[in-house]
Amino acid sequence: MKKVLITGAAGFLGSHLCDRFVKEGFYVIAMDNLITGDLKNIEHLFPLEQFEFCHHDVSKFVHVSGKLDYILHFASPASPIDYLKIPIQTLKVGSLGTLNLLGLAKSKKATILVASTSEVYGDPLVHPQNEDYYGNVSPVGPRGVYDEAKRFMESITMAYHRFHGLDTRIVRIFNTYGSRMRLNDGRVVPAFMGQALRGEGLSIFGDGSQTRSFCYIDDQIEGIYRLLFSDYRNPINIGNPHEITIKELAEEIIKLTGTNQKIVYKPLPQDDPLQRQPDITRAKEILGWEPKVKRKEGLKIVYDYFKSLDPEELQRREHRNFA
């Protein structure tokens, strides 16, 4: 049985990766310090013999006994609310955490895939964004703690590949949505869903003309899985290229919920990207991957998921504090 270490395993993406690798017959070691992760996301896997959980901060030395075939490094705060509240931890997990896991991969002769993000492109001057674009990022702005952590992650990963011959993969993840998100984490889909469920107006920052491209979780996991088992070492975009304005998304969610909620406009945060759309030509050609789930279908699944939660669990997901 192949063994995989998944960091950030109790988070949104990490928990779905745990599900996928258990399903594929791997022995899964799930690692998380629970600063933003939630054990509820993976507790259904605890009874399985091929699954174990390790409560650990990867910014500190990481030890795994025995053989290890694969590492997926997904430990990182991923939403603006999170990384603006814990900026130092965000920088440390992207730098020290990545360094520790690259060292572990080297010692175990394991393949490592690191989770980068579309934020490496910053507020892009090229549209749509392809992997050859270097980005437009402020290292000293409030979002710099996240953006630069991911840019460093990519640099040191490629250094280990070139200098040590380490087998590496880099995925650049664009906006993804699905079950197990926190309603108050600042990401636009769960934020709108939470406001809809509470009967509040939907908050738009700026005039709503800024764009995003939303990928459903099942599509995202499939793209990551295919990348791991490819032989492609350079960064690759995994996201849905169907671009939409934030105002249009709010209107779609209002229609989905069948309410007459109003849109409330608020000031645009500093360095908030005005456009975000992946060029997935490389993913199509190299991985044979492209998203399958239409936004209308995915949003309904997610809204039904949040509606299905009992009131206590819904409130817990809405008001979760840092561990």
Rank of each mutant, 00 (worst) to 15 (best):
G186C: 00
F322H: 12
G194N: 05
V264F: 02
L314D: 04
Q277L: 03
D19P: 02
T157I: 09
Q129I: 04
E248C: 00
D123V: 04
K40A: 11
T257I: 05
L274G: 11
K108Q: 09
P311D: 07
I286F: 03
V28C: 06
I42V: 14
G288C: 03
F46A: 15
S95W: 12
P80R: 06
F12K: 03
G66C: 10
G135F: 01
L314Q: 06
P47E: 07
L13M: 11
F12C: 12
A115P: 08
G239Q: 10
Q277P: 01
F152A: 00
N184Q: 10
H63M: 08
T90Q: 07
R169V: 07
G201R: 05
R151S: 00
G144N: 02
Q220T: 14
M153V: 08
T259A: 09
F152Q: 01
N240Q: 13
F74M: 04
G122D: 00
H242C: 06
Y305F: 15
L17K: 12
P47D: 07
P267Q: 14
G37W: 14
T176K: 02
N175D: 08
K307Q: 14
K296L: 11
G66K: 11
P267G: 13
E290F: 05
S138Q: 05
Y225Q: 13
N33S: 15
R187C: 04
Q220P: 04
K284N: 08
E297A: 12
N100K: 07
K296R: 14
G201E: 05
R226F: 10
L13P: 05
D310Q: 09
Q261V: 02
R316D: 08
P273C: 12
P87N: 06
N260S: 13
D19H: 08
S203V: 06
Y303F: 14
E285Y: 12
